[in-house]
Amino acid sequence: MAAKNGSTTIEKEQIFGMAEQEMEYRVDLFNRLTKICFDKCIDKRYKESELNMGENSCIDRCVSKYWQVTNLIGQLLGSNRPPM
């Protein structure tokens, strides 16, 4: 649009493409984290719709450990930037 020539347009597309991928990455991370901590922490008999105390503290620790695994594997993959 506001670009002066074809090459700049492609550069701009790449910047927007990168931003989009960054966002998709975070959404994907959040969704996987949410799913796996639900699987690990929540009683599937659904006797009530509230989270009980045990579930709540399990969730907090699950998120914290998932975060650490993300960082640990990020280091192994040799990425210099933090995973978010």
Partner: peptide
């Protein structure tokens, strides 16, 4: 189904809060 959906939404909100804290570099 109702309980499952309600429970999942509450779970998701709690994960969102913890996730935001970690994103802001809160000490853990």
């Amino acid at each position: 189904v109702r309980r499952c959906a309600e429970k999942f939404l509450k779970h998701s909100m709690r994960v969102g809060m913890r996730f935001a804290e970690l994103n802001q570099g809160a000490a853990t």
